[in-house]
Amino acid sequence: MAQLGFYHNTNECVGCKACIIACKDKNDLPLGEKFRKVYDYAKCDWDVDANGVSVPSNYYSYSVSMACNHCASPACMAVCPVEAIMKRDDGIVYINGDLCIGCSSCITACPFDAPYLSTNSNKSKKCDFCMDYIDEGGVPQCVAACSTRCLSCGDIDELRSKHKGVETLPPIPEDVSTSPSVLFTPSRLHPNCEADGVLTSTEEEITSATI
């Protein structure tokens, strides 16, 4: 079975968040709600001497854009009591809003904070890979809007053979037990992906909640 997925080259991402806004526009998301989020992560050690000479070392900063990872083994789907979460033949995982009862089981189960409870509808919502566009041969709106062309999509196996990378990297949660269909190229500034940095995004920036 084919599996669609996202590829994000964090080495070429400036954290412009056009992907978030394009997604919100396409999906008519109200204030606060986000299917896609961008996490800014950075490190820098400073050695400051008595004369004020300030030398940085071990520094990096990069941004990670992530939405639903359309996992091969979606935890959200497994726990949904009403089978409102479906996985298509192309691997896209989506929520059938007509069936969702807003119990939030999927929200707790997802390692990646992808689904959230919309207080407007009291239903769980998340990225559906713009499956209406996919069905017409297109790409998700976030990919089409990417300003540096660092966010791509495609068959995840093809993406993995084309771009060597990692399934997760800081500050994205490490748990890949759901086999997320996502691939990240680490920043050249931090190829070992050690989690020794600081999440510089603010709470509002990476929260999905109706305001």
């Binding site: 790409v139 062309r149 966010l151 999509c153 771009h163």
Partner: peptide, 16 residues
């Protein structure tokens, strides 16, 4: 390697 064509195969915004 991260080609631009990969992200722009078609005109998705004209759909639906």
């Amino acid at each position: 390697e991260n080609t631009v064509t990969e992200t722009t195969e078609s005109s998705p915004t004209s759909m639906k």
